[in-house]
Each structure stands twice: as C-alpha cells, then as structure tokens.
C-alpha cells in the first residue's frame, strides 16, 4: 500500500521562525551591553508571549478561534 503523503505548507513555520529569530536575537543581545540593548533584549525575549496574550484576550472577549482552512 502506498504511504499517504501529507504536505505541510511552508507558511506553517512563518510566524514561528520570525518569533524564534527575534527571541534568540533578544536573548543574545542582552549579554552584549546595557541601555538600549537591554530594551531590545526584553522586547525580543518577550515577543514569544504576544501570541499567547492575543489568544487569551480573544478568549476573554468571547470570539471563536476556530478557523479551519481545510
């Protein structure tokens, strides 16, 4: 029997890659100095929490999250 091939869109990783790159950049940049670099560090490290906050705020405002593409 021929194995079923599941094709995933490259866009699945679009946002995660952006968040990951900014996250690593933020974590690293904080070690290089203070002042503006600290702010960049906090922004980069904290960016991962934005989508979580968005989901939580949507949930509290009662909007449905289900948007299946299939």
């Amino acid at each position: 029997m021929k194995a079923q091939r599941i094709i995933s869109r490259p866009s699945v990783f679009g946002w995660p890659i952006l968040i990951g790159v900014l996250g690593v950049g933020g974590i690293v940049v904080g070690l290089l100095g203070e002042g503006v670099l600290d702010w960049l560090c906090w922004a980069g490290t904290g960016i991962a929490l934005i989508p979580v906050g968005r989901v939580l705020s949507r949930r509290s405002s009662g909007r449905s999250e289900t948007r299946d593409k299939g």
Binding site: S8, V12, W15, R54, V55, R59, T66, R67, D68, K69
Partner: peptide, 10 residues
C-alpha cells in the same frame, strides 16, 4: 497544516 498560527479551538 489546516489551522492558522496561534489557533486555540475553544
């Protein structure tokens, strides 16, 4: 693959 990024199906 069938869901938008950051989807939680409440």
């Amino acid at each position: 693959r069938k869901l938008d990024f950051a989807t939680v199906r409440h």
